[in-house]
């Protein structure tokens, strides 16, 4: 309970700061929109298969997330507020608060990216409900798997490239499965059961990594 209260305080603080500066949100969003525009421009309305659509949209989300998801911890390190946060909240609460913040950020970005992608790429979403569910699952998976990496990378130089590099192997299983799960929503017929199975696998993978992050985070966060 104490952890939840402290995590909520961390989340509130980060949201408030983000609403005032809009640094992370704008950088992720602009990057994502630019890459969607680039993809659509270079493909010039070529008809893609549902699986290709699913793969492209998740690649865009992954790299966009890689530009902005480090923000939470990097800013603490740069602004010299890390020790204040460490005094204020337990490592678990910090991790949970940052995770929820990243989740909110990703949800906001996906809410823009998916419609824009479908509009620019003429992708027809045949099952909007399934699409929304998979998108939400993806936001949970990406934030759940990479929040601890943000804290690691905050100690490094050339952070966003190291973040993308370290996040890719960790997220690869989840991304492969997300593509699998969202393909039916773009109209890849007959694989709905496969999609459900993939979604379940994403849930279990994210669950395992979140438990592991919870256990490892204190070792990374504290000195």
């Amino acid at each position: 309970m104490e952890v939840l209260r402290a995590a909520a305080a961390v989340l509130r603080k980060d949201l408030r700061g983000e609403l005032r500066t809009r640094y992370a949100l704008s950088s992720i969003l602009l990057f994502a929109l630019a890459s969607v525009a680039l993809v659509s421009f270079t493909l010039k309305g070529e008809a893609l298969t549902p699986r290709q659509h699913a793969a492209l949209v998740w690649v865009v989300v992954f790299f966009a997330a890689a530009t902005g998801l480090t923000r939470g911890f990097v800013q603490e390190a740069d602004a010299g507020t890390e020790l204040l946060l460490r005094q204020a909240a337990s490592p678990e609460a910090v991790w949970l608060g940052k995770l929820l913040f990243n989740l909110a950020l990703l949800a906001a970005v996906e809410a823009v990216i998916f419609p824009v992608y479908c509009g620019l790429m003429y992708a027809t979403v045949e099952q909007p409900a399934l699409m929304a569910a998979v998108a939400a699952l993806g936001a949970v998976a990406i934030s759940g798997c990479t929040t601890i990496l943000g804290a690691m990378v905050a100690r490094a130089r050339s952070r966003s490239s190291v973040f993308a590099l370290t996040a890719l192997p960790i997220l690869l299983p989840a991304l492969l499965l997300l593509v699998q799960a969202s393909a039916p929503a773009f109209g890849a017929g007959g694989t709905e059961a496969g999609g459900r199975e993939a979604a379940l696998a994403v849930v279990s993978y994210t669950g395992i990594l979140m438990v592991l992050s919870w256990l490892l985070f204190p070792a990374v966060w504290e000195e």
């Binding site: 601890i148 990496l149 690691m152 990378v153 100690r155 490094a156 130089r157 050339s158 490239s161 190291v162 590099l165 370290t166 192997p169 960790i170 690869l172 299983p173 395992i208 990594l209 592991l212 992050s213 490892l216 070792a219 990374v220 000195e223």
Partner: peptide
């Protein structure tokens, strides 16, 4: 290796790369 070479403090490098190797093993 990229993570290791980008962290200067020995203690932080050690704890970070240790945690990463464990996470990555599960992913693999």
């Amino acid at each position: 290796f990229a993570l290791r070479s980008s962290i200067e403090s020995a203690d932080r490098r050690a704890s970070t790369s240790a945690a990463y190797s464990i996470l990555a093993m599960v992913a693999a």
